[in-house]
């Protein structure tokens, strides 16, 4: 379990399974994330339109569940999706949620 947690935070998923940030259908920003740690960093910087686009399509939930296999985070994403957050607070809410979850995972992490 702990080994799996380590992988989830630091391990990079293959390129074809990375999360690619789009602002709308077919419009790729050039930003991608191959791990949860990188994902949190990208949330800080990526165009907010992209966060809005993916959150309400359920893409974050799908990626965290299917690629990172993180059911807890997927559930958090689903909750955020329901709130229909205003654009100005979307980024901060998303960042807070994912970074809090990341810290929680790091605390459970086995020392390398």
């Amino acid at each position: 379990m702990k080994e799996e947690t380590n992988l989830r935070i630091f391990g990079a998923v293959p390129r074809e399974k990375a999360f690619y940030f789009f602002t709308s259908i077919g419009n790729y920003t050039g930003e991608s994330a191959t791990s949860l740690k990188e994902f949190v960093e990208k949330i800080k910087d990526v165009n907010v339109k992209s966060l809005q686009f993916h959150l309400y399509r359920g893409d974050f939930e799908k990626w965290t569940l299917e690629v990172l296999r993180d059911e807890e985070l997927a559930l958090e994403m689903r909750k955020l999706q329901r709130f229909n957050l205003a654009v100005d607070i979307l980024r901060s809410q998303l960042y807070e949620t994912v970074s809090k979850h990341l810290k929680h995972l790091e605390n459970r992490m086995e020392p390398i």
Binding site: E16, N27, Y28, S32
Partner: peptide
């Protein structure tokens, strides 16, 4: 586009 084009090495962005 998300699964077959964006992951190609060398793709910087797509419109």
């Amino acid at each position: 586009i998300a699964n077959s084009v964006a992951p190609l090495p060398g793709v910087l962005r797509i419109r």
